[in-house]
Design a protein around this nucleic acid. Structure first.
Lengths: 217, 217, 217, 217
DNA sequence: CATGAATGAGTGTTCATTCAT
DNA sequence: AATGAATGAACACTCATTCAT
């Protein structure tokens, strides 16, 4: 359950970067959290920024991998629910990792920031095309699709900041609630049960299991 | 247009804290941005953290002042549009200040964090009561009012991160669009023109002029 | 009773230099103790070191003035008692000033240190000659007159560190006790009452009144 | 002869604290004296104050250890000579360390000052009891035993300020002279040779060798 | 594989002092 | 007579990182 030293470092970094912030996290704190000397860290990583970069890349790639697994044949309503599900699920189950990605990209230098932004743009492009498709087919109706996309992503990402698995809201309820709000925002309101069934039918467990292999759900 | 030194420091701090983050902002960078020696800073401020605290307190208070000016006699739909307007307007016109408030509270020490959180809770309480009223009266319909509130606030705060007054979206369009999305999310979809008129009638210019006196809009 | 600003500064400096030390005393602390702005200090003084120098010079000169007033016609035993009286009396009634002189000379730069040391040497020379006279006349008997002088001065100076006028020992008892110990150390033990009478007859009140005019005793 | 880096730091600190004072000694001066970078200091010590505290604790403990080795069976006259010997010997051979202890305690913060004062009180208690015993048995006769104790300690500590091993006074003469003066002060004058023999018989070399192991004398 | 030692650059903050007003 | 503004140097201390062992 402990994992290799490299994995422990990664985990400790995610935790510290998320709670204190990248710049407020010292290399010695990180080493102490892992239980090793700070010099030893450098056997397993490059610079502190390398570590941040690796974390963000992994996080983005997992999310993109999962989203890419959504069949393009599905209709926009279902695909949107799928995107919401994956985004909310990942932010609820990996709140620290996603918080780092959402808040600490600015600590990357030019090149790496560009790479990260590229991945983010690719991911947001998936949302953009679903929304565009839905608007084109008349399923969705919004004043400004771009603003709607930004609003939806922001709203879903917020989950990382407050959701607790030990609270009264189950992951299933959480994802369904967000999917329902998302559809409503797009003027495509649906009944809660309907969305529940829709997500059940979509059955994204294999997708998340593939993209986040460490979580046995 | 320059303002007193104290004001310049405040502005530079807001800018740097927003773009680089509190911990990544050095006291010397701040001084350089103002064009003074780093030791001179300390004639105008206490510690760096005092500065952050003052920024957050002011920002919160302005937002709360404005929101408090919304008449409680208005119906929930109108009050919600008003809250959205004020929130989005302030985040669009003061994106750096609001970004600092939204991202850097954790850099405050215990006592001050508590004070800031208290203000935030008061503000969020205004949203909670509007949503509750709307749900009670049947105007709004959501699966979970608390989650809806969090989602709405998150989505509106996002504006600080992307909106540019020089882009193609006017402040008027921006606020109307967000109000429309908010109502839709609460299962209370309304026509764009309807909301436009609603906000015109509400006439919040005096409110924002009172709460943010420096901005002549 | 407050005195002019200059006098207040002097007093505050003596107090702070004595309790915290010269280097640990900030110019702002000093100003605050006087109740003025730190810039205003510089209307009344030169540098911080000037202040220290002035304090030490005054203190030394008062002590030397007093000691010089002891008639050279008196016998060594009486003159020694007189020196002890003046030294102990000044250290008991001006403990902070004398503590500064005894502990902070090293904070003076070369020139001024030399001036201070010169005064100190002149003062110690008075003790040396009394002891030498007493040894020559057979009144005193010590293994090493120089060491005896150093020991006596050190022992008498210690009074500044512990004596409190509000304690159970009166100034009269204090000075008499030290005079007795000094004579004993010089192998010239005398009865307590004898020394008491000796000091009464010597009547040094006019001497201290002349050298320390501010103290009405 | 150089010793480990830690030992060099300790020695340099003792030297600088003694000559310049704690507050007048910069961390960079200290590092320079050792020949290392100022940041490297922090591999070997905590804060500057930690260093001062360690120095004072060690010094006090050595002196107390030595004094505790004096048999309580000895008569007051001999025990007093022993205390004087150890005190003078330590101040003559470790003048800088003892000067730091005697002058810089005030630079310690509350807790540590209290700890240091406690040790000092324990040590002075040893002197107090010897003096009390001698007065009770009639060996000593003083007007005020407490004042006598203070005077004796002060006079003996002064040695740190002037004695030089390269001068004309040997350590043996120095200690004997002080012991003789101390006894005289207590109205228990003894011949110089007598005290010399007394100290020879007491043979404190093993005691100092045990308490100050680094000095091969 | 792991660490102690080392460092230059940097941290936020305070220093004594000057000067225009 | 008094001060607010200003500064360069210094303060104690921490930073991320390297490297020999």
């Amino acid at each position: 359950m402990a994992g290799g030293t490299e994995e422990q470092i990664r985990r400790a970094a995610v935790h510290l970067f998320a709670t204190r912030g990248f710049h407020a996290t010292g290399i010695r704190q990180l080493a102490e959290a892992v239980g090793i000397n700070s010099s030893t860290l450098y056997h397993y990583m490059g610079t502190k920024e390398d570590l941040l970069f690796a974390i963000t890349q992994d996080s983005f790639r997992r999310l993109i991998d999962a989203a890419d697994r959504l069949s393009p044949d599905l209709n926009p309503q279902v695909r949107l629910c799928g995107l919401v599900y994956l985004h909310v699920w990942s932010h609820a189950t990996h709140p620290e990792e996603t918080a780092v990605v959402d808040n600490e990209l600015r600590s990357l230098d030019g090149d790496r920031l560009a790479q990260a932004v590229e991945l983010r743009d690719r991911y947001e492009g998936l949302w953009a095309s679903v929304i565009a498709d839905g608007c084109a087919s008349g399923t969705f109706a919004v004043q400004d699709p771009r603003i709607a996309r930004i609003a939806l992503l922001q709203m879903c990402s917020g989950v990382a900041g407050w959701y607790s698995a030990s609270g009264k809201t189950s992951l299933r309820d959480l994802t369904t609630t967000y999917a329902q709000m998302a559809l409503s925002l797009l003027s495509c309101g649906r009944d809660y049960r309907t969305i529940e069934r829709l997500l059940d039918d979509l059955d994204l467990q294999p997708v998340v299991a593939a993209a986040w292999p460490e979580s046995a759900i």
